[in-house]
Amino acid sequence: MYYYIMEPPSTRAVRQTYQKLRDLLTNLGIAGEMMAASPARTPEELAMMGLERGYSTIVAVGGDAFVNYIAQTIIGQAVLGIIPIGEAQQSAELIGTNNMKTAAEFLKFRRLSTFNTTTADPDSLIFLDAVVEPPKLAKVSFVIDGKLRGYAYFNKMTVTRNLEIKIESQHLVEPKKILGLFSTGGTVVKSLSQFHGRNVRLTTEPDLALLVDGRPVAKTPLQLRLNPNSLKVITKRGSIL
């Protein structure tokens, strides 16, 4: 039997969706224990309760940030099921559907895929892409696997569960003035970098928050570590991704 944890409903429409989901899961014969997170009971606390009660599959019902919180708590202890609702684009891509009914059917067929995750020390998990977006161009210094050091300026930095670091920047180079009067017009310099490793140290100036779907999961400086094949998830097709 599955243990479902639902994100606190933000609107009446979402509340109604949850009611439909209950009916759907009952009809599929996979209705289990359903818990709704709230300010009094965080998703992490509910996930811990599910583990203590011996559930081997915990289903996160909600958006990307919510799914990431649940994954962080149950990694290595239970299989993760996902029913994407709301802002859940990454979760939907990961399991292979953004449709609630189809996602529920995937749960019934229970095909497992194994995913890498990344730990941001001390205890934050990156299962879905996490981003750092400073308000203006910022500097990041990094050390990859202890043998490659570097720095870059960025507007957006993404850290994936495979410990890939994508650094994007776009800035205007000041125009040159001719005879102190006429400018030649500035040029926009775009830069995209991509690295990957197993252990990465990231430091930004200034310190910045790492966000999953707009919610903070960690803050720089970050020590990131790859956890290969560490999380089992119910998806459309069983595989190791």
Partner: peptide
């Protein structure tokens, strides 16, 4: 099986020192 990553790109505003190795 995990792949060995999508490759490495060092952007125009990046400076590196050390060994840059990728399969």
């Amino acid at each position: 099986m995990e792949t060995n990553g999508p490759g490495t790109t060092v952007g125009v505003n990046v400076a590196l020192s050390g060994t840059l190795k990728d399969q």
